[in-house]
Every structure is written in C-alpha cells, then in structure tokens.
Amino acid sequence: MPDISTTMIIVLCVAAAAAGWIDAVVGGGGLLLLPALLLGLPHAQPAAVLGTNKAVAIVGTAGAAVTYVRKTPVDVKLAVRIGLAALAGSVGGAALAGGISKDTMRPLIMGVLVVVAAVVIFKPGFGAAPSASPVSRQRVLLTIALAGLGIGFYDGLIGPGTGTFLVLALTALLHLDLVTASATAKIVNCCTNAGALAMFAYQGMVFWQLAALMAVFNLAGGMVGARMALKKGSGFVRGVLLTVVGALVVKLGLEQWG
C-alpha cells in the first residue's frame, strides 16, 4: 500500500464507487477515477497510477457486465469480437501515442462530442428503443472496425471517454437501445482493460493492495449503476450520457487551453 493518509484512502474509495456507477450507466468513469488517483498518489510513476486505475476499473466493469447480461439480452459473442478488435486497436494506439500530437487531436474529438450531444438533444428517439429490423453482416463488420479497432485505437492514444464513445457507436451502428448498448460496452471494456492490466502487471506497475480496496467500492458502484440503468431505462441513461459528454468536453478543453 502506498504511503497515503486514511482520509485520502476514504476519498479514493468514494471516488471509485462514483466512477463505477458512472461507468456502468454510460461509460466515462475514468474521468473521475484517474484524476482522483493522480491526486492521491502525487509522487507515483504515471504508469503505476494507470495500472492501479485499470486494476480497479476492471472489477467494477466486470460486475456491471454480469449484472447486465443476467437482466437484459446481450449478444455476448459479438461483444467479445468487438472487444478483441478494441484490444488490438488499443495496442496500436499506445504504440503511436508518442508520435502524434494530442493537442491536435483534442479539438477534433471535442467537435465530435459537441455533434454527438446535439444529436442526442435534438433527436429524442436516439437509443430509446432497438430497431426491429435485423442488422446486416456488413454493419456488424463496420461496427467491429469502428467501435472495435477505431475506439480501441483512441483508447490507447488518448483514452478519456472511451466507454461513452462505445455506447454511442454501438447505439448508432447496431441500432441498439442505450441500455443494451451500455451492457455491450461493458463486455468490450472488460476485454480492453484485461489486456492493459496484464501489461501493467507484467511491468510491476500496480499498487495491488490499494487497488483491491478501491475495487470493492468500484464493484458496488458498478452493480448499483447497472441496476438503476435497467430499472429506469433509456431515458435515464440519456440524461447521464449528456452529463458525461459535457464533462468530457470541459475536461478536454481545459487540457487544451487551460
């Protein structure tokens, strides 16, 4: 366990629970969890902070995924295929991260998010109900390429909001309702988190005791969030989605111009 105060441990556990709840509903829990760890572990190596973050997040994500799968119909095989593509994409993104200017990428991503928010606001039916028509093989392959490789690449390159992007992409490409898209995104996230965590663990960059304690709270938050999303439906998820998208735009803007 790193040398941190009891008060900070409590703060980190509360942040882990809140991040688990946000992540389970619509993705984007890392917007809260990673800054909290950076605050609580100011002298730790960045890789150790990222590794601990993954060790915490994968537990909550897995718990939320199990809750969703038990309560709502999810195409697990398709989700795993997208997840494996996302894992490959994230490796490629991480490999190129040092050679691409993130200052150039952020304004583009912010623009995409603003457009997404406009679509959700001005198209109330977005993600309200699944499409009755079957999804073609071509659209499935497009989803694997864009939601898997593409968003996985973004996760390795920059990272924030990956879960939110997955929910939006799955809703738009596979014509899922927002609740089913959130459930599918959790399975995809489990795949990418597992790959990243394995690499960080191999490098010895995980504070396992702290991660285990925070993971308990992240798991609880994730399971509560999944149950609330299932109970309250797509309208509730839509509201949380807009909140998270707004927070992501603000975060990227502060990083770019703050």
Results as ranks from 00 to 15, higher is better:
Tyr202Glu: 10
Gly156Gln: 14
Thr171His: 09
Leu146Tyr: 00
Ala201Tyr: 06
Gly20Thr: 02
Leu174His: 01
Ala44Thr: 00
Pro73Trp: 09
Asp155Trp: 06
Met1Phe: 01
Val66Phe: 06
Lys231His: 12
Val249Cys: 07
Leu168Trp: 04
Ala169Pro: 03
Ala147Asp: 11
Thr192Tyr: 12
Val74Met: 14
Val206Asp: 13
Pro46Lys: 13
Thr72Asp: 09
Val114Lys: 00
Met8Ala: 11
Leu241Asp: 06
Val188Ile: 12
Ala62Val: 05
Phe207Asp: 12
Arg106Gln: 13
Val80Pro: 03
Ser101Val: 07
Gly63Gln: 03
Leu113Gly: 08
Ala181Val: 05
Ile100Gly: 06
Gly239Ser: 14
Leu50Asp: 09
Gly92Gln: 00
Met223Asp: 07
Leu113Trp: 05
Ala64Val: 01
Arg70Lys: 14
Leu41Asn: 00
Val26Ile: 11
Gly125Trp: 01
Cys190Val: 15
Ala118Ser: 07
Leu37Asp: 03
Phe236Asn: 10
Leu230Pro: 14
Gly28Arg: 13
Val25Glu: 09
Thr243Pro: 09
Val244Ile: 13
Met105Pro: 13
Val114Ser: 02
Phe165Pro: 00
Met205Ser: 14
Ser131Lys: 11
Lys77Ile: 09
Leu41Val: 00
Tyr202Pro: 01
Ala132Val: 01
Ala18Glu: 09
Leu241Cys: 08
Leu230Val: 14
Gly161Phe: 08
Ile121Thr: 10
Pro160Gln: 11
Ala62Leu: 11
Gly161Asn: 05
Met1Gly: 11
Phe217Gly: 11
Ala15Thr: 07
Ile22Met: 14
Met223Glu: 11
Ala24Ser: 13
Gly28Lys: 12
Val250Lys: 04
Asp75Glu: 04
Leu50Ile: 10
Thr184Arg: 09
Phe207Ser: 13
Val116Ile: 08
Leu146Gly: 01
Lys231Gln: 08
Leu170Glu: 08
Gly253Ala: 00
Val216Lys: 07
Gly150Arg: 04
Gly222Leu: 04
Asp103Glu: 05
Cys190Asn: 07
Leu170Val: 00
Ala118Glu: 02
Thr67Tyr: 02
Thr67Ile: 02
Phe165Thr: 00
